[in-house]
Write a protein that binds this DNA or RNA. Sequence first.
DNA 1: GATGAAACCGAGCGAGCGCTCGGTAAAGTA
DNA 2: TACTTTACCGAGCGCTCGCTCGGTTTCATC
Lengths: 226, 226
Amino acid sequence: MVGQSARQSTTPAAATGAGRPGAASAAGGWQDFSPPALRPALAAALACFMENGYHGTTIRQVATRAGLSVPGLYHHFPSKQALLVALDDEAMNELWNRSTAALADGPQSVLDRFDRLIRCLTLFHAHRGGLAFIALSEIRSLEGSARAEHIAARDRQQALLSGIIDEGVATGIFDAPHPRETSRAITTMCTGVAQWYRIDGELTPEELADRYGRLCRLTAGAAAGR
Amino acid sequence: MVGQSARQSTTPAAATGAGRPGAASAAGGWQDFSPPALRPALAAALACFMENGYHGTTIRQVATRAGLSVPGLYHHFPSKQALLVALDDEAMNELWNRSTAALADGPQSVLDRFDRLIRCLTLFHAHRGGLAFIALSEIRSLEGSARAEHIAARDRQQALLSGIIDEGVATGIFDAPHPRETSRAITTMCTGVAQWYRIDGELTPEELADRYGRLCRLTAGAAAGR
DNA sequence: GATGAAACCGAGCGAGCGCTCGGTAAAGTA
DNA sequence: TACTTTACCGAGCGCTCGCTCGGTTTCATC
């Protein structure tokens, strides 16, 4: 309940990014998750895809959930695939924006950046579990260039963490004889949060992030700390 | 290439289990992964589901891949859903049989059992990645009681690891102030192998299992060892 | 060589799919 | 008031879906 949810709502977050929520440009804003803020049709599509998957969802289900007729839905999005691509873009962009903001926001030692990135990953996958889950599990359903773009974004995102781990190994902060597997394992741990975490469960995202921060330090071969 | 792949093929594995491959009843047999041994129609369904997901796969694709006509396929399985359930059962049963065999096979200290279970989980998700991936990602597509049975099997499987971790925390072998999250994180790491590991990649499953064994010890708060 | 079971297939049924046609209603602008 | 834009919908098109009907072929057994 308490945590450090960093409510700084008096400052309108509107500087470098596109001005959309999720840009999180202000200091500390990368851990502020107030509004979901998806357009109604997208929110309906997300809910349907989470329940039945992309191919298991019909356009009529999405329309009904959005309170629209089928042609009414097609007024906002040109195809079912476009709904998926928009959700995927939203997820990948928001995670990237938050991650880069987290890395820039504070002391720049390797361990500080590691801790902030882990916190960012955990908070995102807890708060935006649905979005992250779809982006992770429906890669196969992305058609044409959208799939390649997703994979490029995922690799770029993954490089943030593995870069820090490589740095930490080079400077002796991390004891990781196989940095690639260490990085893979930590990434999997954090993204896995989207698969099981429920926002109405026992832990707040902030509490979970504290616990995962400690676990990831251990996995990376750092001192337990806090 | 070397590893400890425990080739003991002279002894026919045929004692306690149903006699099917994957029962792995002989000593050390839980880490012997020689034959995939799925019926042709199931193997075809698995390949299709991996490429396009359950709902994204048509019965005609499965039939073609199996070298059958559509009615020919229906001679072996009564429905598309039955193919998925059979694959899911195969995955859950094989993992359970191997896990219980691994726990029984050797010294019974907490750390010994932990190491063998982690090794078993990693080897399984590397060798049987396709099967494990479908069982993990298509839970939503299981209809009726099959979904509840899968979840029961998954919880039973999960309890093997969390039980050991609780034991280790109680006896002071593991330093884990939040055993449930530790258990969840380690499980996620190991099952995550099915999402990215390729059998034709740089690491053999046995090498990967060695590295993951070390990582999981760290995550659990044990001494690094080896 | 007759018999029955198992293995298989060409053709196609009814249903539901993604998507569109040709509109109407409401709101902003001149 | 006329005109444009935006937001929406009833009806339905063409297609593919999971599945089945009514067969034929293969093969072990007598």
